[in-house]
């Protein structure tokens, strides 16, 4: 299907949430250092699939997962793997930005301090670097020690991106990261995502088809918890093989 190396692969992944069969026999392959968009109507399990990848689904009650998620050749559900390491390897951008209840600086330093013993000067440089990468350094450099909650939503989302960058993940999980933002802030995030995909494996859940068309290299179409079609963006958008995909891509079902 594609020649790139596979970063994440699932085999027969099934998820039950409150006894609802949310994901059914998911078999997907996600290429490394590309942007993969997961599209589909709301409630089809996009977010659930995303959160199984870094095992965040498990912190909720009444969740049952079966099957395998293989990241870099290793099953993340195997008991050998430390959950924190799996999660650290996957940065998360959620629908609404959730800055931690601390200052702007500490939001980024949080992850760094957990994983490394570093001197404060080095910490400062790393925090600065991450904020810079997320395109927010210039806006916050004079108020690093103000509470993060004082930032605008768009700034908060970029701060969350900086926070995710701080622990040097290889994968980015983005759950409709622009849905709560105004058009300009959304555009900034999109640009960042476009930049990120050169160095990271980015998985973007989105309900905006146009966003997927703008950004995606590879697309997975989910419908009622099943993978209907997956393939390169070019192929899936211009030449869908499945009739449901065709209907969705053309806007007939939503």
């Amino acid at each position: 299907m594609f020649n790139e190396s596979v970063k994440i692969e699932t085999s027969n992944l099934n998820v039950y949430y409150h006894k609802n069969h949310v994901l059914r026999d998911i078999n997907v392959r996600i290429p490394a250092k590309k942007l993969t968009a997961i599209i589909g109507p709301s409630g089809c399990g996009k977010t659930t699939l995303l959160k199984t990848f870094n095992r965040l689904l498990e912190i909720r009650d009444n969740v049952k997962i079966s099957g395998e998620v293989i990241v870099d050749g290793e099953n993340i559900f195997s008991s050998k793997k430390d959950v924190s390491d799996i999660r650290k390897n996957m940065g998360l951008l959620s629908q609404k930005p959730y800055p931690l209840p601390m200052s702007i600086y500490d939001n980024v330093a949080y992850g760094l301090k957990i994983h490394n013993h570093i001197k404060s000067e080095e910490l400062y440089e790393r925090v600065k670097h991450c904020l810079d990468e997320a395109g927010i350094w210039k806006e916050v450099k004079d108020r690093l020690h103000d509470p993060a909650s004082g930032l605008s939503l768009g700034q908060q989302q970029r701060l969350c991106l900086a926070r995710a960058l701080s622990v040097e993940p290889e994968i980015f999980l983005c759950d409709e990261p622009t849905s709560a933002l105004d058009p300009i802030a959304a555009q900034q995030i999109e640009r960042l995502l476009d930049k990120l995909k050169n160095n990271f494996t980015v998985i973007l859940v989105t309900h905006t088809l146009r966003q997927a068309k703008r950004l995606a290299d590879y697309v997975i179409f989910l419908y009622f918890g099943k993978v209907v079609e997956q393939g390169s963006a070019d192929e899936l958008f211009n030449n869908p093989r499945n009739s449901e995909t065709k209907a969705y891509v053309e806007g007939d079902i939503s």
């Binding site: 959620s94 949080y110 992850g111 957990i114 926070r163 999980l173």
Partner: peptide, 9 residues
């Protein structure tokens, strides 16, 4: 909580 857990806390 997810935000904190996702950086490996």
């Amino acid at each position: 909580k997810e935000a904190s857990l996702s950086v490996g806390a």
